[in-house]
Design a protein around this nucleic acid. Structure first.
Lengths: 340, 340
DNA sequence: CTGAAAGCGCTTACAG
DNA sequence: CTGAAAGCGCTTACAG
């Protein structure tokens, strides 16, 4: 491998100063047209690329965004949650489109992740994405804000904290899907998913769920809510508890598709037909949802739009513009798991 | 936001020189224990982080790897292929474990992607991942090699090119799955997937497929091979062509799970029962494969191991060690789409 | 329009 | 064990 060319090499060949080379390569209008053309030709010929470490050091910005995907530590080695994987893809694409590079990092318990990337000048800003106990997480958000770090996060809006969140309107989504289930004639509807401030997204979906029940004059039976977090296994177990509880139920609204899929597995094992005996609905619309049997009725969170909004909001924030928290509209996707 | 602290700020507070600060923070054995402790305490207090641009510029390395995911340009805005998405996740995790950062970039037609990251000193090496016409792609690989870029790629081994590839033993996988189908009593087995050097992975799977047929004294009928590339839609269309061809067939081996899923859709639409009338097998074992109806028998490519091997091989390469191309063992995953 | 020069914040050979 | 100094490769105010 030959040594990399520097701007001095180009200057030498072009018979100009290194400053002029730098200007020409940045398309500065200060530089003479002919000189610029010549310099750019030489640069191309030498396969020259501006050294990003040097230019970033000089300009104190990196044109790079860091994506921190934090996960439940219990979930160590297993597959990444498909919804977040899809977000990862969409954010990567949105960054490419904006000419930014994306540094991706998975975070576990490490307690100083919050600042590393921006403080070490590797990224101009951060996108936070993931799950885990929100109460623990909140402290870190406060720290980040205090340090003046530029960041946006995916998730539910947080009261009393002035940070930019992009999230799905979970309340609305939970309400719409439950209304659909009610319209299919179901009355005893269980909710599988944690309903506490430790998992605010799920909690909002549950609140929307309850709202739908109330507005249709159905009673909210707390015995029909079972906690479950982020895995298919959690959904399976919650459904087993529901079945063994002897509460009567004819429908399940799950706080996520993965939970719904686990619930379907439990129902099948217990000989319950879907959707005849029990209908099942999910949330997220991950790719798998179209392929379950029966295909899963769910609420789509548009990851493509979400990724674009996260990136755009962060870039505005970095540019010093005002950015407001915003909600993405959920969309009911009717398949067959709640009847035709 | 207060200004970031530099090593000079720390030096000032600690009453030592900046060189000593730098040494202490890098845990150099040269530095006195007490001095080091003191300096590190101050650094922590000031929330100091080494400026990576400066240190990378100085050391000429970045502790960063770039992942280039190139895609078929026709596939512009749709979802990313789930198999590659899963690889992305596993590579990210493997990098984290090794203490490297990962720069992710999607590449389309752009014709000078090959060098950008390493030449601009943003990354120490490259991982190439993706699909598209291999013949076009090959030229770029040659260029990369000539420039002395450090890179590894996921994919089939390439003769005559000395580059490091990590890939699945596609021949073996194609052979095993076909043998399974034969053992289920099927004789007229169609293959859905391109069989040409433009898609070497698929081609190898097809070769393994043919080998299995031959070794069981079944004739290879070229009329039963239909081209299809990387999408569910392509699989659907190929299966339609198969059905309309009036060739008789009782089984389909697909070159990927996505193709298999598309084929299942076509079969169902044409009223063919799976697995009774036609069995279907895929390749990859993407997450969706367990949830199709019936669940898809397929060949697993272990993305977790693959990601680790790609990262480890690249790090060795960067360190100047010899690395050999290697193959990952495929694993037959029997579900119900080929009968019990 | 161009050049000489300073400086971004580190790491590390050199000298002690 | 520690410090003074050079230098990594750029960008950009300053002077012309």
């Amino acid at each position: 491998m030959k040594d990399k060319a520097t701007s001095f090499d180009i200057a030498y060949r072009a018979g100009v100063s290194q400053s002029t080379v730098s200007r020409a390569l940045r398309n500065s209008p200060l530089v003479n047209e002919a000189t610029r053309t010549k310099i750019q030709a030489i640069a191309k010929e030498l396969n020259y690329k501006v050294d990003k470490n040097a230019s970033n050091l000089r300009t104190q910005q990196s044109d790079t965004i860091a994506l921190l995907l934090f996960e439940d530590p219990t979930n160590d080695d297993s597959a990444i949650n498909p919804f977040f994987l899809s977000m990862l893809g969409s954010i990567t694409r949105a960054c490419s489109n904006k000419g930014y590079d994306l540094l991706v990092s998975f975070q576990q318990a490490s307690d100083d992740w919050h600042a590393d990337f921006e403080d070490s000048n590797k990224a101009d800003g951060l996108i936070l994405l993931g799950y885990g106990d929100f109460v623990d997480f909140e402290e870190k958000l406060v720290q980040l804000t205090e340090q003046g770090t530029h960041f946006v996060r995916w998730g539910a809006e947080v009261e009393d904290l002035s940070l930019v969140s992009i999230g799905c309107d979970n309340f609305q989504g939970g309400k719409e899907v439950t209304e659909h289930v009610i319209n299919q004639g179901r009355k005893n509807i269980a909710f599988l998913g944690s309903a506490s401030s430790h998992a605010p997204e799920f909690f909002d979906r549950y609140k929307g769920h309850c709202e739908a029940l109330k507005s249709h004059n159905l009673t909210v039976n707390p015995e029909l809510q079972f906690n479950a977090l982020y895995t298919e296994e959690a959904g399976y177990k919650a459904a087993c508890r529901l079945i063994e509880s002897n509460e009567s139920f004819d429908a399940i609204c799950a706080a996520s598709d993965l939970i719904a899929i686990g619930a379907m597995r439990a129902l099948k094992e217990h000989g319950k037909s879907i959707p005849e005996e029990v209908t099942v609905a999910g949330f997220d619309d991950i790719a798998i949802a179209s392929f379950t049997f029966p295909p899963l009725t769910t609420v789509k969170q548009d990851t493509k739009i979400a990724g674009e909004m996260l990136v755009e909001s962060l870039l505005k924030l970095i540019a010093g513009e005002d950015v407001s928290t915003s909600l993405i509209k959920p969309e009911l996707v009717v398949r067959k798991s709640c009847g035709e």
